[in-house]
Amino acid sequence: MISTATTTRILEVEGLSARYGHVEALRPVDLHVDEGELVAVLGPNGAGKSTLMNAIMGLVPTQGRVRFRGREVPRRAPAAAAALGIVLVPEGRGIFAPMTVAENLELGAYLLNDRHEYARRHARVLAMFPRLKERLSQTAGSLSGGEQQMLAVGRALMSEPKILLLDEPSLGLAPRIIEEILQKLGELNRQGLSIILVEQKAPLVLKLAQRAYLLSVGSIAAEIDPRTIKSHDELVQYYLG
């Protein structure tokens, strides 16, 4: 356990659980993220990582509480969560394929009604992902997988989130692209953005994260300090119990 006494919590999750019908996809989970922290959520397929992200966002029916900077986040109201500054880049990116890259970015700032602020954010996102700039008028569906992931992250950034939730951004991408995207996320984190990063590719993420939670069969199995993980074997130990 790392001492967090001096820092403030941006997100606190208490006893958050979710079920699909009779299946309990997520047993009551407690976790927290400090301001400016990058926290990884690791775990094998079916451990409930995506459900946890959807539950925080309020996309699925849940029990338990989520607090953002001390304020209760209303349940089952993703629009309200987004307005607070919690934004999810969903698994599989969820880009709007028939729309252009520019339109996708616009939808990221859907709650914004300020032309100048919009232009500022737009410029910032394009500076971060120059490749999107060349493709602005192309339909999002025509982009490569890596570019689509960049668009998904860029679209989320258009809303100027306070905390960014990323659900397996590496899914289906080439190693070089994954590294490029993770490097951007590290950059964003150094600029002060709090991030929860869900991943299966633990070794890559542990280089980046300040803390990690290990999720297995719907509940948190361990909280890891990445600095203490010396070898791959140790991680495997965690995975297999």
Binding site: V87, R93, G94, A97, L111
Partner: peptide, 13 residues
């Protein structure tokens, strides 16, 4: 039409 969940995650009602 494209992705209801993604749209909701962006704050679109």
């Amino acid at each position: 039409a494209g992705s209801e969940d993604a749209a909701r995650a962006l704050g679109i009602d």
